[in-house]
C-alpha cells in the first residue's frame, strides 16, 4: 500500500511538473501587448533598417543592419536628412554599419538614420540619446563601417 502511494505521488508530481513546465517560463516571456494588425507588418517587402538599441547615453554606438535592398549597390547613409557616408550592399541586399554618437550634452535628442540605395529603396530607423540611458556598444562580432558625427550635424 505504501509503495502504491509513493508511486502514485511520484506519478502525480511528474504529471504536474509537465503540465506546469511552460508556466514556469512566465517571468521570462512577454506576451504580445499590441494588437496583431496590419500596421505591425506595414514594411513588408519594403527595405528594412534595424538598429540594435533604440536609445543610449551620449557616446553610444548604434549597430544598423539594412536588408531587402538591391544587391551589390552603393547605399547612402543620412542622419536627420544630412549625408553621413556610403556603404555597399552584399549579394543578399544587406549592409551593416555603426553610428558613433557624439559625447557633447548638446547632442541629446532623437536621430533618424536613413539608408537609401535609390529613390525606391530607402529605409529609416532612429535612436535617441538620453542622459539617463545606458551606454551601448555595437554587439561583439558586429562588422560594419563606422560613421561618426559631432553635435553639429554634417552639412
Amino acid at each position: 500500500m505504501k509503495q502504491f502511494t509513493l508511486r502514485t505521488i511520484v506519478r502525480a508530481l511528474f504529471a504536474l511538473v509537465i503540465l506546469l513546465a511552460g508556466v514556469a517560463m512566465v517571468p521570462y516571456v512577454d506576451r504580445p501587448a499590441a494588437a496583431l494588425e496590419w500596421r505591425m507588418m506595414a514594411g513588408v517587402y519594403a527595405p528594412e533598417l534595424a538598429v540594435h538599441a533604440s536609445e543610449g547615453a551620449l557616446g553610444s554606438q548604434f549597430a544598423f543592419t539594412g536588408s531587402g535592398f538591391p544587391a551589390h549597390k552603393p547605399a547612402t547613409v543620412f542622419v536627420n536628412g544630412r549625408y553621413l557616408g556610403r556603404v555597399m550592399t552584399d549579394g543578399q541586399g544587406m549592409a551593416q554599419f555603426i553610428v558613433q554618437s557624439p559625447t557633447s550634452p548638446l547632442a541629446l535628442g532623437h536621430y533618424d538614420i536613413t539608408m537609401e540605395v535609390d529613390m525606391n529603396a530607402s529605409a529609416t530607423q532612429g535612436f535617441t540619446l538620453r542622459e539617463d540611458a545606458p551606454l551601448v556598444w555595437a554587439p561583439a562580432g558586429f562588422m560594419g563601417r563606422l560613421f561618426v558625427f559631432g553635435e553639429r550635424l554634417p552639412q
Binding site: L19, A21, M25
Partner: peptide
C-alpha cells in the same frame, strides 16, 4: 510558440 499555446501547452 509559448504564447500560442498559453504556456500550459508547452510541457504536454
Amino acid at each position: 510558440l509559448w504564447t500560442a499555446f498559453l504556456a500550459i501547452g508547452i510541457g504536454p
